[in-house]
């Protein structure tokens, strides 16, 4: 996967989202800019590519943890990986609201919802649970949060969704509270026992990213 298809529908959503943020939430403009860098796109395209190799079949119900504005990721998952439904959990209300602007087309077609909820301490959205078993868990920002084993223990005691996890060893930022030194540590933190992909990539901003896919 080398690019996102910039369709008229997507263009409409994203341009409205950007102008809406500029007008209504000017304090969030810089955050949105940071979410749309080439490095952000690279890491999501990488995810889409490797996930398709490991699992070419559709996914029915995906859980995204800390998905932020989720513009690139939602589009990749919907168009490249055939994800039928996804819920993006983020603790930040602005992220929830802004992500709805970017993903209006997906929300309207019942593919995307966003939830301001901490899934380490709270239950999942009823709307998501009503969709049946969650078969895909994605966290592209593991360095920002507690180890993923807690999510498995709390929500997936008896099921084994495919997990796609990204993290980094770049600990220069205060909010990188859980950097890992390598792929093994990322795998171990999540308690994955069946690893189908493990790789690392230097993004254009110079940051090393790790990604593991497994159960």
């Amino acid at each position: 996967m080398e690019y996102i298809k910039y369709t008229p529908e997507l263009s409409n959503n994203w341009s409205r989202a950007l102008s809406g943020v500029a007008k209504q939430k000017p304090w969030a403009v810089q955050r949105v800019e940071h979410s749309m860098t080439s490095s952000q796109l690279e890491s999501k395209l990488w995810l889409g590519t490797e996930l398709l190799k490991v699992h070419p079949e559709p996914f029915n119900n995906a859980m995204i943890i800390g998905g932020w504005f989720c513009h690139f990721l939602a589009e990749v998952l919907a168009s490249n990986n055939n994800v039928k439904f996804m819920c993006n959990y983020d603790i930040c209300r602005e992220s929830q609201l802004i992500s709805y602007k970017f993903n209006r087309r997906l929300k309207d077609s019942d593919v995307y919802i966003a939830s301001q909820r901490n899934v380490f301490t709270n239950k999942l959205e009823n709307t998501q649970l009503a969709k049946g078993e969650i078969d895909l868990v994605i966290n592209t920002s593991c360095e920002h949060m507690f180890p993923m084993q807690m999510i498995k223990d709390r929500h997936f005691k008896n099921t084994y969704p495919l997990c796609v996890l990204q993290s980094t060893d770049d600990d220069q930022y205060d909010d990188h509270i859980n950097c890992v030194k390598d792929l093994d540590e990322l795998t171990e933190q999540a308690g994955l026992i069946d690893v189908m992909y493990a790789g690392e990539k230097i993004l254009s901003n110079g940051m090393k990213r790790f990604m593991v896919i497994g159960r």
């Binding site: 969030a28 932020w68 603790i91 930040c92 209300r93 602005e94 920002h144 205060d174």
Partner: peptide, 8 residues
């Protein structure tokens, strides 16, 4: 609000 998600 801007820094909410960054825990600061």
């Amino acid at each position: 609000k801007k820094n909410y998600g960054m825990i600061k």
